[in-house]
Measured scan of single mutants.
Amino acid sequence: MQRVNMIMAESPGLITICLLGYLLSAECTVFLDHENANKILNRPKRYNSGKLEEFVQGNLERECMEEKCSFEEAREVFENTERTTEFWKQYVDGDQCESNPCLNGGSCKDDINSYECWCPFGFEGKNCELDVTCNIKNGRCEQFCKNSADNKVVCSCTEGYRLAENQKSCEPAVPFPCGRVSVSQTSKLTRAETVFPDVDYVNSTEAETILDNITQSTQSFNDFTRVVGGEDAKPGQFPWQVVLNGKVDAFCGGSIVNEKWIVTAAHCVETGVKITVVAGEHNIEETEHTEQKRNVIRIIPHHNYNAAINKYNHDIALLELDEPLVLNSYVTPICIADKEYTNIFLKFGSGYVSGWGRVFHKGRSALVLQYLRVPLVDRATCLRSTKFTIYNNMFCAGFHEGGRDSCQGDSGGPHVTEVEGTSFLTGIISWGEECAMKGKYGIYTKVSRYVNWIKEKTKLT
């Protein structure tokens, strides 16, 4: 034993070699072989497995989906700052455009905790909710729209109204504003409101030439003092309507412009014939205590009207009353817009006519005020429907199939267009061939041609 100890002390290297040989010859039971080890760690190889990531292109799944990435790591994937920024906006807080917040056709661009709407022409605001041009839906104005110097929408209202708090709607500024039905039992019968379409306001006024200088022999019209197929109006439903009495009662109609003036057809009036105007009328054979009678003290036909040349060209006249009318729910003026808007309103496509005229061709006159909704007829169809001249200051309205029309005794009465609950004068009943005849239409004086003249002559002093 002493000898062994001496050998170990003198030859430590020998001992180490012996131990190493023993270990190498022993069977290893701690580690699995290569094949079995792979069965336990069965993990798919990654895209760049075996390579240094710093030297390969980034992978979106590896960089940002398996674990949260930084902007720089995302930049490695896209290799483009702009594309990385677009991805980053949604990656950080989701897609803010998912709810489609942009209105009126706006395009949404996502941002971090926010979004941006790219608005089409005519709109602005956070969600493109603000109209900035009158060309689109009248700028959301209830009545009139004008573009300011910086191309912003400025709404306005006709006389007797003021802008509401929203700067879009119009509200009454006087007790009985024009064009409004205020009798409670008839307010439910107000005709369907007309909503502004998209309009090209630059070209809204037709490029028409008034044929002022045409000389033409007097034409022989049949029954051209021209509501057939209409309905009984309720008291106060058309408070701007008046009836004219002269040699015979209810020979023509008219509309209240203001307390002192009536507008009617020029062919209705004769110099030297006494005319009485009755406002607030409903049943011409009954006294309903809503009527107001006034005498006409002055007749002003349009300066281009000449019955000797043509009885229905420039067929418009103004009547001055001896005493002002007292405005109330049964006696209310009709609204008159400017030339541009009167023309736009007419193009809405349908209007209402009213009167006490004959209820059928050569038949009896109506006792109760009649009204009828009539569609506008395109000019080409209008011209083809008659052998008589249709001037540019006239328009056609009615039904091709016949059966409904204005008729004798309705002449001078109103053709009105309702705009968001307020009625505007767009025409004056003038003439036609018979009444409600198939293929024939009622012919009306186009008020847009005469609004400046009306307003100039009827100013209240």
Rank of each mutant, 00 (worst) to 15 (best):
A265I: 01
G253K: 07
S411I: 09
I40G: 15
K438H: 15
C69E: 03
F196C: 06
N38G: 15
C335T: 01
R294S: 01
G442V: 14
E116G: 13
S329P: 14
S99T: 14
H361A: 07
N222S: 13
N36P: 15
P239K: 01
H303Y: 13
T389G: 12
W356P: 04
T381Q: 14
Y305A: 02
P177D: 00
N343H: 09
P120E: 06
P101K: 05
G160I: 00
K455Y: 05
L369Q: 07
T225G: 10
Y450E: 00
Y115Q: 04
A250Y: 07
A436H: 13
N36G: 13
C18L: 14
E433S: 12
L60D: 12
V419D: 01
E61G: 10
C170T: 00
P12S: 15
V451H: 04
V416E: 02
E281T: 12
R83A: 12
C18N: 02
S406A: 08
V199N: 12
D322V: 01
Y352H: 12
S365Q: 15
K109A: 09
K126C: 05
T271P: 04
L14V: 12
N127E: 05
V243I: 11
C28N: 02
S411G: 11
P235F: 06
K188E: 10
V278E: 03
G236V: 05
L163A: 03
D110C: 05
V248G: 02
L325S: 00
V30L: 14
I136W: 04
S204F: 09
N310T: 08
I344S: 14
N48R: 07
K188H: 08
S354M: 13
V263G: 01
E231P: 09
V92C: 07
E171Q: 13
T225V: 12
I210F: 08
N343V: 04
G254R: 00
L130G: 14
W261S: 01
G58C: 07
N113C: 04
V377L: 12
R358Q: 12
D410H: 14
E288M: 05
T342R: 01
E76V: 15
S423N: 13
F121S: 14
H314M: 01
V56N: 15
H302P: 02
E288F: 05
G398Y: 04
G355A: 10
N258Y: 01
T186L: 08
S156A: 11
L24N: 02
S114H: 13
F123R: 10
G236S: 04
G122V: 02
Y115I: 03
L163T: 05
C128F: 01
I214T: 14
V331M: 00
G357W: 08
A337Y: 00
L244Q: 00
I390G: 07
R75D: 15
F123Y: 12
A26T: 12
A26S: 09
S255V: 11
A265F: 02
L14R: 03
N80K: 09
D315K: 00
P197R: 09
A337L: 01
P324R: 05
G280N: 02
G230D: 05
N59V: 04
I284C: 04
G280A: 03
P120G: 09
T186C: 04
V195D: 12
E270S: 04
N113Y: 07
Y371P: 06
D405P: 12
C335P: 02
G94A: 11
E116I: 05
E67R: 15
L372K: 13
T85D: 11
G363E: 13
K455Q: 07
K188Q: 09
C155L: 00
L383T: 14
I297E: 03
D200A: 13
Q241D: 03
S350V: 08
T445I: 07
K362C: 03
G355H: 12
V195Q: 11
N147R: 13
T287I: 13
E79F: 07
C435E: 03
E10V: 14
S148M: 10
K68Q: 15
I443W: 12
L41V: 14
V419R: 06
L14E: 01
V278A: 05
C108Q: 01
I262F: 02
N258M: 00
D223A: 10
T389S: 07
Y371I: 14
Y450R: 01
G13Q: 10
I210R: 08
E72Y: 07
E73K: 06
D111I: 15
E67C: 04
L60W: 05
R364H: 08
T461K: 10
C119K: 02
E340S: 06
N283M: 10
A279K: 01
N80S: 11
F78P: 15
S329C: 04
Y341M: 15
T209N: 10
S70F: 07
L24I: 08
L319E: 00
S350Q: 15
S169G: 08
H361S: 11
V153K: 15
S217T: 11
K347E: 09
E418P: 11
A266L: 02
R298W: 01
A207Q: 11
R3V: 12
P414N: 13
S25R: 05
V269P: 02
S169D: 10
V447A: 10
V263N: 01
Q90L: 07
L367I: 11
W261C: 00
A366N: 14
L41C: 04
A380S: 07
F176V: 07
N203H: 08
T29F: 12
K146L: 11
S156I: 04
A308T: 12
D150A: 10
P175E: 13
N36C: 04
A265Y: 01
D110R: 15
P197T: 11
G236W: 05
R83N: 15
I344G: 07
T386E: 07
E53K: 07
N328K: 00
L327V: 08
S49Y: 10
Y341C: 03
F55Q: 15
S430W: 03
H400L: 14
G230L: 13
E231M: 11
A380K: 14
V359W: 11
H302D: 02
R449P: 15
Q370G: 10
V368G: 11
C69T: 04
V4Y: 06
L325P: 00
L367W: 14
W240S: 00
L346I: 08
E72F: 06
L20F: 12
F176H: 09
I256N: 00
I344Q: 07
K440R: 12
M65G: 04
N343D: 15
P197Y: 14
R404E: 05
E129H: 08
F87H: 15
E165I: 08
S406D: 15
N328I: 00
I40R: 08
K339I: 07
L14A: 06
H361D: 15
F251K: 04
F31Q: 15
L319F: 04
T290L: 05
W118T: 11
V183K: 08
A366T: 15
Q96A: 14
S182N: 10
L23M: 11
R373H: 13
A307Y: 09
M65D: 14
C145F: 01
V195N: 12
N48S: 14
L425M: 04
A173H: 09
K89T: 08
N343Q: 07
F71Q: 15
